[in-house]
């Protein structure tokens, strides 16, 4: 059957970012020989990994119609808590990891609990948690970076598996698991339903509170993993780490086609959004464009992506 204009536009809205990403990569491959080298791609992958992890988490949240502004602070808290237990010859590696993840999960669950019990909008609640988390990170670290971490811990952010940096391995694993959760599980289906029409989801017998608890907790979990990666990469637990990370993560999700009004979004889209942000930052570096311009470019891309998405939706 012949395709109509509107369905073509819809297709463009759906695949536009993917195409734009490919085109940008091809142009870069020709304009700077350094771009398409294995080592540069590994650098991009490593740089993207933390943002992508947070973006996966916030994609779940945004699909349910919420938002999470506390991602960056959860990165810091998890990073500091992890570092506290990761000094050489103290605890086995599993202890700092579990402690860090536990901290993120607790903060995420706190978000979920307050949002579902108080009916205060997620924007406000997570804005509060953002400040609380930053304060906690400073309290726990007494305002100083925590360094002198064990070698085995530092492997997480700096090591390689068969030549692939470990953060990229984690990124790929997280992507697969998050995609499966979103597309193949009942929880994923419920997330779309809650974001698509919350009263109807409730009337359909969905435990809306439970679904929301899950997404904010998952967001905390993924932020914590991001925090551990970051701490390991810079070999220090930094109480000021992760500031502003939430905005990059939300940007990745939105560029990838997740609608802030809830009910739509994909992990593949978010991954491409995160990669696009990473590639543009990297290439502008390679092309010696100052970081001031990079920010302008990034902003234009965020708005452009949403405009394109809107065009695709119009009938």
């Amino acid at each position: 059957m012949e395709k109509t204009i509107s369905s073509r536009l819809t297709d463009f809205g759906r695949y536009g970012i993917f195409l734009a990403f490919l085109i940008i990569c091809i142009v870069l491959a020709f304009s700077t020989p350094k771009f398409f080298t294995v080592s540069n791609l590994m650098i991009i992958g490593t740089q993207v990994s933390i943002n992508a992890l947070l973006a996966f988490g916030v994609t779940f949240v945004i699909i349910t119609g919420g938002i999470d502004l506390s991602l960056g602070s959860m990165v810091a808290v998890a990073g500091v808590v992890t570092a506290m237990f990761a000094h050489p010859d103290t605890y086995p590696l599993v202890v700092p990891l579990l402690a860090g993840i536990g901290a993120g999960v607790l903060l995420g669950a706190f978000n979920g609990l307050v949002i579902t019990k108080s009916k205060v909008p997620p924007f406000i609640v997570t804005l509060g948690t953002m400040t609380i988390g930053r304060g906690l990170a400073l309290i726990l670290s007494k305002g100083r970076p925590i360094s002198n971490l064990s070698d085995s811990f530092n492997f997480i952010g700096g090591g390689t598996v068969f030549g692939v940096p470990f953060p990229i391995v984690i990124l790929i694993l997280a992507f697969i698991i998050c995609s499966v959760v979103l597309n193949k599980t009942i929880l994923g289906r419920y997330m779309y339903a809650v974001g698509g029409n919350e009263p109807a989801a409730r009337a359909s017998g969905i435990h809306v509170t439970k679904v929301k608890m899950w997404v904010y907790t998952i967001s905390g979990l993924l932020s914590a993993i991001g925090g551990i990666l970051l701490t390991s990469r810079i070999t220090t637990g930094q109480p000021n780490a992760g500031a502003g990370f939430e905005l990059d993560a939300i940007a990745a999700a939105i560029i990838g086609g997740t609608s802030t009004s809830g009910g739509t979004g994909t992990m593949t889209g978010t991954l491409i959004g995160a990669l696009l942000i990473g590639v543009i930052g990297n290439s502008l570096d390679l092309l010696n464009v100052t970081s001031y311009y990079q920010q302008v470019v990034m902003g234009v891309i965020i708005i452009g992506a949403v405009v394109l998405d809107g065009l695709g939706k119009k009938d």
């Binding site: 974001g195 698509g196 009910g263």
Partner: peptide, 8 residues
């Protein structure tokens, strides 16, 4: 309002 989820 309470019947279906429009995006699905």
């Amino acid at each position: 309002g309470l019947g279906f989820i429009p995006g699905m």
